[in-house]
């Protein structure tokens, strides 16, 4: 288990300047949904964006996080 706030902090530390929203989908602190709006995603494919996110949560993905649904946008895409 991991708190949604902790997930958000890890993502914000890995992607400075990103806007991160993390929702605990089940109330059990292991299934999350995240919206990440980050300038670092520019020019990257969906797979590369998700891999950036997974890299930031490398240890957590091995156990505490069972499921993580991701929406990854650049600031331009998000406001479009």
């Amino acid at each position: 288990m991991i708190a949604a706030d902790k997930v958000r902090t890890l993502l914000q530390d890995a992607l400075p300047g990103a806007r991160v929203e993390v929702e605990d989908l089940t109330g059990t602190s292991d299934h999350f949904k995240a919206l990440i709006v980050a300038p670092q995603f520019a020019g990257k494919s969906r797979i590369e964006r998700h891999q950036l996110v997974y890299a930031a949560l490398h240890e957590e993905m091995k156990g505490p996080i069972h499921a993580l649904s991701l929406v990854t946008k650049t600031p331009e895409e998000h406001t479009a």
Partner: peptide, 25 residues
């Protein structure tokens, strides 16, 4: 695939993505 989650979809040997990406596509 350097991808920590299941499911994973492959088309003609190419990794396409997991549930979020496949659904979006």
């Amino acid at each position: 695939s350097n991808w920590p989650t299941i499911p994973q979809l492959y088309i003609k040997g190419k990794f396409i993505g997991g549930c979020d990406i496949v659904s979006e596509m």
